[in-house]
Simulated scan of single mutants.
Amino acid sequence: MEQEVLTLPDEGDGVRVITCAGEFDLATQEPLRQVCDPALNDPAIQRIVLDVSRVTFADSSLLNTLLRLLRTGRLVLAGPLPRSLTRVLDPFRVRELFPTADSVKAARTL
């Protein structure tokens, strides 16, 4: 699957939804950073919902990006979390650190 990173249109509720699909490793992190950085720098954005349900591969570089977003206190992962991502989160025992919802709709209100 080809990588896809999309920012959905804002609904004026302070939530930025970013969808991710495909493979995320050191060489392919830039598109995700390019959409996350504006969200982090926008004071109107109170929550960043990252839909990771279609991530097919992830390595520690995606984990680093997620941890950076988590430190802002605004990140919610929308799933269900794919096995490709839990294989990165579980060895470091960090899955429980991430607020997670079963869908984008649920994550918007978490």
Rank of each mutant, 00 (worst) to 15 (best):
T109H: 06
L81I: 14
E11R: 15
V52D: 02
T28N: 13
G79Y: 04
L8M: 06
P31Q: 03
V52K: 01
R95D: 01
T56D: 15
D102C: 00
P82T: 12
R33C: 01
L85K: 05
E23R: 15
T86M: 02
D13S: 08
P82R: 06
T72C: 11
L89R: 08
E23H: 13
I45Y: 12
L81H: 03
R47T: 15
L89I: 07
L32W: 02
L75E: 10
R95T: 09
R54C: 11
G73E: 13
A27P: 04
L110G: 07
D25Q: 12
S103D: 04
F24D: 04
S60V: 14
D90K: 14
A21F: 06
E11W: 00
E11V: 04
V94Q: 08
R54N: 09
P9C: 02
R71A: 14
Q34L: 15
T56R: 15
R54D: 11
L50Q: 03
Q46E: 15
L70W: 13
D102I: 00
A106V: 08
L50R: 04
Q3Y: 01
G12I: 04
L77N: 10
L66P: 07
D37L: 14
L63V: 11
S103I: 06
V55C: 07
E96L: 05
L70I: 07
L50W: 04
S61H: 13
F98C: 10
R83H: 15
S53W: 03
T109Q: 10
L75H: 04
R74Y: 14
P80T: 01
P9W: 09
D59S: 12
L50D: 02
S103V: 01
L110N: 02
L66I: 09
V15E: 06
P82V: 04
D42K: 08
P91K: 05
R71D: 11
L66E: 06
L97P: 02
D90W: 09
L40G: 11
A107G: 00
F57S: 10
Q3T: 09
V5H: 01
L63F: 11
V104T: 01
G12T: 09
T7G: 07
L50A: 03
R108C: 06
P31R: 07
V15N: 03
R16M: 08
P38L: 12
L63R: 04
D37W: 11
A44I: 03
T72N: 11
D10P: 12
L89F: 07
L110P: 02
I48Y: 10
I18W: 06
V49E: 06
G73R: 13
R71C: 02
L97H: 10
D59V: 12
L81N: 11
D59K: 09
T28S: 15
V104Q: 00
V88K: 10
L8F: 00
L69K: 11
D13N: 14
C20K: 05
Q34M: 10
A39V: 10
L85T: 08
L67N: 12
G22R: 02
A101S: 08
R16Y: 01
E96Q: 13
F57H: 15
L40I: 03
P82G: 10
V17H: 01
V88F: 05
G14L: 07
E2R: 08
V15S: 02
V15A: 05
Q3I: 05
F24Y: 03
P38C: 10
S60E: 14
P38E: 07
A58K: 02
V94E: 09
D102E: 13
G73Q: 14
L81M: 05
T109C: 03
V94M: 13
A44K: 15
